[in-house]
């Protein structure tokens, strides 16, 4: 399968704390890769660097674009922002931080379409309405303000607003964190079916190995800014080799 995003020798420190310590990885097209680890393991920093939101102190991130593989640094800020607006998506843990609560649900979805060049108002509205339906929100809510939505609905709205430009790569930072368990199941199911249907590649950061097991093809386990173990999701979770992975797996309460 074709490579899509590649990290080589990423290193980044906050003061004396190494958040990333020589991290390399490869994400292929249509692949779901989960990054797991406790808080402070560097997984969110890794996501920020891979998605071009933070420049690493050393190492580079290559985005494979058709035949060319160019690093984000070589592409430059404007080109990276253009990728982020249309071909990449980012689903944050807190939808309230990612969405604009003072404009309508339809406006939140339409804004990203307009940022990537759409101009026809009726078409934008129709697309927004279709996407509300795709994330199981009543299209009648198109003109409602997100502040009238529940937490689960807000997360689904964020997913709609992210996927509306048909991105090929989506970054997700704890997409089900902070939600009720019943709502989590619905979001997971939704993410899984959309990812499958749209053929997305996903980089998913989570501390919940149950989420990783349900969604990810492959798994990376991070600790103290380093990758301590990686492999097929079921291999790493059923036959963990590293002491830290064994601790992670053993610490989960069976349902």
């Amino acid at each position: 399968m074709t490579p899509l995003l590649q990290a080589r020798g990423l290193t980044h420190r906050f003061g004396r704390v190494p958040a990333l310590d020589d991290v390399s990885l490869l994400l292929r097209r249509h692949e779901i890769l989960a990054i797991v680890g406790e808080s402070g393991s560097g997984k969110t920093t890794l996501l920020n660097v891979l998605s071009g939101r933070l420049a690493p102190q050393s190492g580079d991130v290559l985005f494979h674009d058709g035949s060319a593989a160019l690093s984000l640094a070589a592409r430059g800020e404007i080109a990276v922002r253009k990728l982020q607006r249309a071909r990449w998506g980012y689903v944050a843990q807190d939808p309230r931080a990612a969405l604009r609560l003072d404009i309508t649900a339809g406006g939140n979805i339409g804004e990203r379409l307009m940022a990537s060049g759409a101009r026809n108002y009726a078409e934008i509205r129709a697309t927004a309405s279709r996407w509300l339906e795709a994330v199981e929100i009543d299209p009648q809510r198109l003109d409602d303000l997100p502040r009238t939505f529940s937490g689960g609905m807000l997360q689904r709205l964020q997913i709609a607003a992210t996927l509306v430009t048909d991105p090929e790569l989506v970054f997700m930072d704890e997409p089900t964190g902070g939600l009720d368990v019943s709502v989590q199941a619905r979001i997971l199911d939704l993410i899984r079916s959309l990812v499958r249907r749209l053929g997305l590649a996903v980089l998913l950061v989570t501390h919940d190995i149950g989420v990783a097991r349900l969604l990810a093809d492959r798994l990376i386990v991070m600790r103290h800014g380093r990758i301590v173990e990686h492999g097929l999701t079921d291999q790493v979770l059923d036959d963990p080799h590293h002491e830290y992975t064994q601790l992670l797996v053993a610490s989960v309460l069976p349902a």
Binding site: G231, L232, D234, Q235, D238, D239, H241
Partner: peptide, 9 residues
């Protein structure tokens, strides 16, 4: 059995 499936390495 799990080794033959590639589940255990």
């Amino acid at each position: 059995l799990r080794a033959l499936y590639g589940n255990y390495r």
